[in-house]
Design a protein around this nucleic acid. Structure first.
Length: 210
DNA sequence: ATCCCGAGGG
DNA sequence: CCCTCTGGAT
């Protein structure tokens, strides 16, 4: 996609949504981290439903650790992959308490060393909790990058690197949320709604999908 | 490449 | 029924 087209692409997404943000509910970097770990292969609506009950009783790393894995499992049983997630959340909280005073480190290497935290989750926390210009390539952004021609790539890392290269600096910080929200509600996996898409004329795929 | 794994939509 | 949802570890 040409540079001038990329510029228009982002300008239109910005017109639609001047101040985009996550749809996960959270009240601290710690809660965002936990919500993102829980969101793997799950909808944010489902995650919010569970954290609405969980965070009041375990709002911090210390209280989550005290809650224990078995009780945590009960709270998140409605979310897919819940056994692995419960184990990882407790193990992560233990490290946060023992090594970081219960706080979430604003550092990629430290984040990715936490159980259940990979590159994508680290990128979300760095961007949304700490305001860094990262782009977390999830299922939506991977699909949108390839489908539209904005940032084609075989792997999520390919797409991430391409996005970091083509995205103008002024759009970098919010790019993650513009792209994910557009992917979630318009450029959907099954039935993309090209008829109400604001960048359909810039898209290399248009209505050819499905 | 495979496993984990519930809810919601079509 | 099938597919998808802000993936990560082995």
């Amino acid at each position: 996609m040409k540079k001038s087209v990329v510029e228009q692409f982002y300008q239109r997404l910005r017109e639609n949504n001047p101040a985009p943000t996550t749809e996960l509910d959270y009240a601290s970097p710690f809660q965002l981290l936990i919500a993102v770990i829980l969101s793997a292969q799950a909808t944010d609506v489902g995650v919010n439903k569970a954290t609405a009950r969980l965070f009041p009783v375990a709002p911090t790393a210390e209280t989550m650790l005290a809650l224990g894995e078995a009780t945590l499992t009960d709270y998140i049983k409605t979310i897919g992959l819940y056994r692995t997630k419960a184990r990882n959340v407790i193990a992560t909280c233990r490290i946060l308490v023992e090594q970081y005073g219960g706080e979430v480190p604003a550092d990629r290497t430290a984040l990715e060393a936490l159980p259940g935290v990979g590159r994508k989750t680290a990128n979300v926390v760095l961007n949304t909790a700490f305001g860094q210009p990262t782009i977390a390539v999830d299922t939506h952004i991977f699909r949108l990058g390839n489908r539209t021609g904005l940032a084609p790539g075989k792997t999520v890392l390919d797409v991430e690197n391409k996005l970091l290269r083509v995205t103008p600096r002024e759009f970098m910080k919010d790019a993650h949320h513009w792209l994910i929200l557009h992917g979630r509600y318009v450029c959907k996996a099954r039935k993309p709604e090209c008829s109400r898409c604001c960048v359909v004329d810039l898209c290399e795929f248009r209505g050819k999908t499905v």
